[in-house]
Design a protein around this nucleic acid. Structure first.
Lengths: 152, 152
DNA sequence: GAAAATGCTTGACGACCTCGACCGAAATCT
DNA sequence: AGATTTCGGTCGAGGTCGTCAAGCATTTTC
């Protein structure tokens, strides 16, 4: 589905999404119209979800991040999910197997904010919060290499 | 530190990092050299960590994601952290307070792969894995609005 | 109050992107 | 097999876009 050229392009764009078509073309050995067409198709197919910018939360005043495990009370699952989605400070949320239904990332500017937000959920779910002390790995894509051995 | 214009620019770029300077300029009401200069400084200051591309893991064959809580055995903390960093399938890792030292996101192509990777850690840490069933909120930045009320 | 620094605009030049026309290889159809 | 269609690529022209230098207004500094 993806060939080496596509993966190569993606790799360059992960590092700098604003790389010019000309530069991309030079690096993969194609002409710029070809690259343009490939990018268009990668976007169209949904391989590229979006071109975006990674912002330092600190620059926006978010000095604290936390991982919150959320276990809705019986019957409250949908209400809790909706609530989470509506609170903009949740920067990520996954619905997982196991005892805790949701695992979410929370950006806050102070401990007070953290408390305020968790309070809004407190009567609908059990939460368990872990403050982030460091980020050994920041968001990165999985390896782009082709699956080990697929059909010919 | 950031003014409304900067926040406005960031908001546009979060949605599409490849927006042209001209377009950015038009939307915020500046000239393109001004926008260019602002972007340069946002990058320089580290507000913009990078322009990047969000890739659908599925397109790369990663059909499974998991959240893994990792509690290194006594004395093994650094070895475990190094190990996690070296395994490219970890797409994110936070060091947190509480009983579990690390919380990480794992991209894998199969349950077999998951098992293989966890095995590499098994003798150095206790792990507890939750398979991701859905993603109510995919990675998004915290609200860009200015802190409620700061000093004048 | 003068001088310097900051952040903006304008206009020109060069680089870049896009479009159409064309081409070759590979897959498909008869 | 041979003809045809499709796919993905190049090339070149035209217009768009980004960058640079010069200049200006406002604010800060001494």
């Amino acid at each position: 589905m993806l060939d080496d050229l596509d993966r190569n392009l993606l790799e360059i764009l992960v590092r700098d999404a604003r790389t010019s078509l000309k530069e991309l073309a030079a690096q993969v050995g194609l002409s710029s119209p070809s690259v343009s067409e490939r990018l268009r198709r990668l976007e169209e197919r949904g391989v590229i979800r979006s071109f975006t910018v990674e912002i330092d939360p600190l620059a926006l005043g978010y000095t604290l991040q936390a991982i919150v495990r959320i276990k809705p009370l019986p019957g409250k699952l949908h209400i809790v999910q909706k609530l989470i989605e509506e609170i903009a400070e949740f920067g990520e949320c996954d619905k997982v197997t196991g005892d805790d239904c949701f695992i979410a990332r929370l950006f806050v500017r102070s401990i007070g904010d953290l408390d305020g937000i968790l309070d809004r959920i407190a009567d609908k779910a059990e939460t368990s919060t872990a403050i982030i002390k460091a980020q050994p790995i920041r968001r990165r894509p999985p390896p782009l290499a082709a699956p080990s051995s697929s059909s010919s």
